[in-house]
Structure formats: structure tokens, C-alpha cells
């Protein structure tokens, strides 16, 4: 592309910079707003610092308010998203491998039903799931959110494709010749080879659970069980009655957004990998 003039480069870069402002301004705003007292939030210009620097105070407030509940919400989110995604990835790997490498009666039926499950929107199952779980006494417990998080039909679909393409029959045969059982072969020989697909499945599920709002909203009544999204929303809905929740909510937003934003930048390439797999095969 040596024929392009520098003028063209400047124009395109300028345009992309303006677009970048659109995507970054809300994040910039929350960084600035988190340094302000609740008075300054309303009386000083939104895109510049206030009269006093309150960032430390605000962050301390966020972590100590209502008996450290924010910390608890963060921890809950990590349990729901991390624990759920870990189990979901393992189960999808085992199931996907079984469907890819064994020939057994009912294999296509099982795969067909699970594939149908990929297409069922999660919002459609949230309400009946609540009714079912309330009969089982699972609503308003960690399990109410965790159990649905442990299933990833899309993950199983991806793992099946990956296992079919990469797990060699000769590897399995040599394991069997050595006298290893089928489960042992899966755990010690197959699982490691599937790692690239497992990372993608794990990340998709992690983000999916972390972002899910409807299911915990329906399942949980006790705010001690809330994930961070639900907790911040609870604080947000308090601000109209009591303005002291403004700095709390803004500080809480900052603390939750920064790690996610950093993680997103570093994990970008995994998404592209996963997306291409899906796009090429699908």
C-alpha cells in the first residue's frame, strides 16, 4: 500500500480517532466522576475534575458501605461466572468428545437436541426455570444461578467440532493398548489437546454468565447473593431517593469496569479465534 498518500492516512486516522472518542468517552467520564464528591458531580463540568480529589474516599466508601456488601457482590460474580464457566467447559469437553469419537446408538439424536438448545434464547427459559426451581427449593440460593450456568450447548457444539478435527484415533488406540480406561484416556490424553477450544468455550461462558441479568434478577431475592451487576443496579435505583448513592454507584461502576476493560484488551485474540472457528464451520 505504498501508493497511498500521507493525506489519506491522516484523514483515515483522524476519522478513526473521532470514532474512538465515542467508544471511550463514557469510560473516561466514569473515571472523572469517580474522583468527585456528590456535590461536585452536579456542579462542576462533567468532563473535567472537580474542586476536590475524592477518588480514594469514594473507593473506600464503595468497599465498606453496607458491611462490605460490594466485596461480597464481586466475590459472588466470580463464583457464578468463574465456577459456572469452569464446570460448563469441562462438561462440554467431555460431552463433545464423546459425541465426536464414539459411535453409539442415539448419538445423532442427542446432538440434534443439544443443537436445538443452542437456538433457544435464554430469556425464554428464565421464567419456566424459576417456576421449576421454586418447586425444587433452589430459588434464592447460589445453585439457582450456578446450575444453569454450568451448561453450555454452544460449548458442546464447539468441542465436538474441535475433537472430531484434532483428536487422533491412533492416540486413543495407543492409550487403550497401554491398558488405560476410557475415562483415564479422556482426562490424561484428550483434554490437554483440546485446550485451545476449551479456552474459547470458557471465555464465552464466563462473559455470558457475568453479563446475564434476567436470570439472577428472577432467581435471587436476598441481596447478599447478588452478582455485581444486580448489586450496582440496586444502588442505582436508590439514587433518586438518597443522593449519597451517586458517588457509591459511580465508584462501584469504576471498580467493576476497569478490570473488565483491561481483560478485554488482552483477551481480544481468543475471541477472534473462536469466532472464526464458528464462522467457517457454521
Amino acid at each position: 500500500m505504498t501508493t497511498r498518500s500521507t493525506g489519506w492516512t491522516v484523514a483515515v486516522t483522524g476519522l478513526l480517532t473521532v470514532v474512538a472518542l465515542y467508544f471511550l468517552v463514557p469510560v473516561y467520564w466514569v473515571v472523572i466522576a469517580a474522583t468527585k464528591s456528590s456535590g461536585d458531580l452536579f456542579t462542576t463540568p462533567g468532563f473535567w475534575f472537580g474542586r476536590t480529589m475524592e477518588l480514594w474516599n469514594n473507593v473506600v466508601q464503595v468497599f465498606t458501605a453496607s458491611d462490605h456488601i460490594y466485596l461480597r457482590w464481586l466475590l459472588n460474580s466470580v463464583i457464578y461466572a468463574g465456577g459456572g464457566a469452569l464446570v460448563a467447559t469441562y462438561l462440554a469437553a467431555a460431552g463433545g468428545y464423546a459425541l465426536a469419537k464414539y459411535d453409539f446408538r442415539g448419538r445423532n439424536l442427542v446432538f440434534g437436541i443439544v443443537l436445538g438448545g443452542v437456538l433457544v434464547p435464554s430469556t425464554a427459559t428464565a421464567l419456566p426455570l424459576f417456576l421449576l426451581f421454586s418447586k425444587l427449593g433452589l430459588t434464592n440460593t447460589y445453585w439457582g444461578v450456578l446450575l444453569p450456568a454450568m451448561v453450555s450447548p454452544f460449548g458442546l457444539y464447539l468441542c465436538r467440532i474441535y475433537a472430531a478435527a484434532t483428536v487422533e484415533d491412533s492416540l486413543l488406540e495407543s492409550g487403550r493398548l497401554d491398558g488405560a480406561g476410557e475415562l483415564r484416556i479422556f482426562h490424561s490424553l484428550v483434554l490437554r489437546g483440546m485446550a485451545p477450544a476449551l479456552v474459547t468455550v470458557f471465555l464465552f461462558q464466563l462473559v455470558g454468565i457475568w453479563n446475564n441479568f434476567l436470570l439472577p434478577l428472577i432467581m435471587l431475592a436476598d441481596d447478599k447473593l447478588y452478582p455485581i451487576t444486580l448489586g450496582l443496579n440496586a444502588w442505582r435505583s436508590e439514587v433518586d431517593r438518597s443522593p449519597e448513592f451517586y458517588p457509591l454507584t459511580v465508584g462501584g461502576l469504576l471498580v467493576s469496569v476497569v478490570p473488565l476493560a483491561i481483560a478485554m484488551i488482552f483477551l481480544q485474540r481468543y475471541w477472534r479465534g473462536g469466532l472464526t472457528d464458528g464462522a467457517v464451520k457454521g
Partner: peptide
């Protein structure tokens, strides 16, 4: 630029909406 444009995807819908 690619990272900047992709960044909002990492922010949950609820958090983005509150923001």
C-alpha cells in the same frame, strides 16, 4: 483502535446502561 472499539463489549449490558 481495534482494542478501543472492542472494549465496550467487555462491559455487561447492565453496567453499560447505568453508565
Amino acid at each position: 483502535f481495534r482494542a478501543a472499539y472492542f472494549l465496550p463489549y467487555g462491559i455487561p449490558g447492565v453496567i453499560a446502561t447505568i453508565l
